[in-house]
Amino acid sequence: MAWISMRAGVCKILATPSGATAVSKPFLQINLKGVFPLQAACISGSVLRDKNKVRPAPFPYKTKRKLDPELPAAARSFDEKSFCIEPNHEFAASFQILKYQLRYSKYIDALAHLLNTGQGVVLERCVYSDFVFLETMHKAGYISKGAHSVYYDIYNNTIDELMKPHLVIYLDIPVPLVQQRIKDRNIPHEVNSKVFTSQYLSDMEYFYKQRYLKEIGTHSELLIYDWSSYGDVEVVIEDIERINFDKFNKYDTKMDDWKLPCEWDWNTARMLYTNDKDILMYSFLIPRFDVPELVLDAYDAHKFRKIWHNAPGMKYDKEFNPDMGDTNLLFKTKKIDHRSSS
């Protein structure tokens, strides 16, 4: 089984059985031709559709930000588009912490899938490279020293609970070419943003190469390619197939997270990522109230909760909300979703 963390591609998890070349090659073809894409920090709706009937989409106000006019200014949404438009906004720090939290949640899901099925997982970026964005934003002055400290308090309290990837693929693109591809893609908030300067992207490249790759390389296998003119996906796949992930013994530092001594330890890890995701996510609750831009005052918090939890689909548990078309509520039994990421 192989675990791959990739820098460029789309935000998806793909499970591919070992040796499933027919499936893995098209996926890599799509991902390796991605252009340093940005991703939206969105939280999915809390209400799932009934399988046997058509009903409104789960709380469309979340994705459309229609609640923002009603919410206090300090509780409104802030995503990558907002960051590109106004990088000096006070929400920049909480935005990046949320991105780390979302990547952490997805990584747990991927670990659970791998340990339950034995299938490899391909991820675009992961929790281990998230600090690159934090450091780049901090150096550019978009994140304060206090918020920087809070991030690392959270990072250090959470990261050791996970298992590092087997393989990291890094697609190297020169900064001028990255800027050109941003222009070619012609997404208005990216093209017109003052964020993606040569200095900002050069700093990001530095933190990738001088910190992330050096640190993750002590544990994981690395494949680095010059992707200026894209590359041959067949060559990448052949390089992956040549790697022997079983060659490392107990004295090697590489793959150390995957050298559990006995079957019961593997069972414990599988149960942790499958059943105790909520416990792992509680590790984000660090009591730091000394950074104003990360703290919502009591009045705003009360107003936010009142509006948020009375919006369509949010008042009751999923599939128990009349305003979403749910019926037969009196006699309906609750289905517990252990893999919910909410």
Rank of each mutant, 00 (worst) to 15 (best):
M1N: 01
A2T: 10
M6K: 04
G9E: 09
T16M: 12
T16Y: 13
T21R: 15
A22G: 15
V23Y: 08
K25G: 04
K25F: 12
L28E: 06
Q29T: 06
I30G: 04
V35G: 02
F36G: 10
A41L: 14
C42I: 13
C42T: 13
S44K: 14
G45S: 05
S46W: 13
R49Y: 11
K51S: 14
N52Q: 01
N52R: 02
Y61G: 15
R65I: 00
P69S: 01
S77A: 01
S77W: 02
S77V: 01
F78N: 05
D79W: 09
K81F: 09
S82C: 14
E86C: 12
P87K: 03
P87I: 00
N88I: 00
N88Y: 05
F91H: 14
S94C: 06
F95K: 05
K99N: 12
L102Y: 07
R103L: 13
K106R: 14
Y107P: 08
I108Q: 11
I108W: 11
D109F: 08
A112L: 03
F133T: 06
M137D: 12
G141V: 00
G146W: 07
S149F: 08
Y152K: 09
Y152V: 06
N156S: 07
I159P: 01
K164P: 06
K164G: 09
I173P: 01
V175C: 07
V178P: 04
V178T: 08
I182Q: 15
K183A: 05
I187E: 03
H189L: 05
S193G: 02
T197N: 02
Q199C: 01
Y206P: 01
Y206D: 08
K209E: 08
R211Y: 11
E215N: 15
I216G: 07
H219L: 02
H219Q: 10
S220D: 06
L222E: 05
L222K: 06
L223D: 06
L223M: 08
I224Y: 00
D226M: 02
D226A: 03
W227K: 14
S228I: 02
D232T: 01
V233I: 07
V233T: 02
V235A: 10
I237G: 04
I240K: 04
R242L: 11
K247G: 03
N249V: 04
D252N: 15
T253I: 04
K254C: 01
M255A: 13
W258F: 00
K259E: 10
C262M: 06
C262D: 15
W264P: 00
A269T: 07
R270P: 04
L272R: 08
N275Y: 15
K277N: 09
K277P: 07
I279V: 14
Y282G: 11
F284L: 05
F289W: 11
F289Q: 11
F289I: 10
P292G: 04
E293H: 03
L296H: 07
A298T: 13
A298G: 02
A301H: 02
F304M: 04
F304G: 02
W308F: 15
A311M: 03
P312D: 00
M314F: 00
M314Y: 03
Y316S: 14
E319M: 13
F320A: 02
N321H: 10
M324H: 06
M324W: 07
L330S: 13
F331N: 14
K332W: 04
K334M: 10
K334F: 15
K334V: 10
K335L: 13
K335H: 12
R339S: 13
S341V: 10
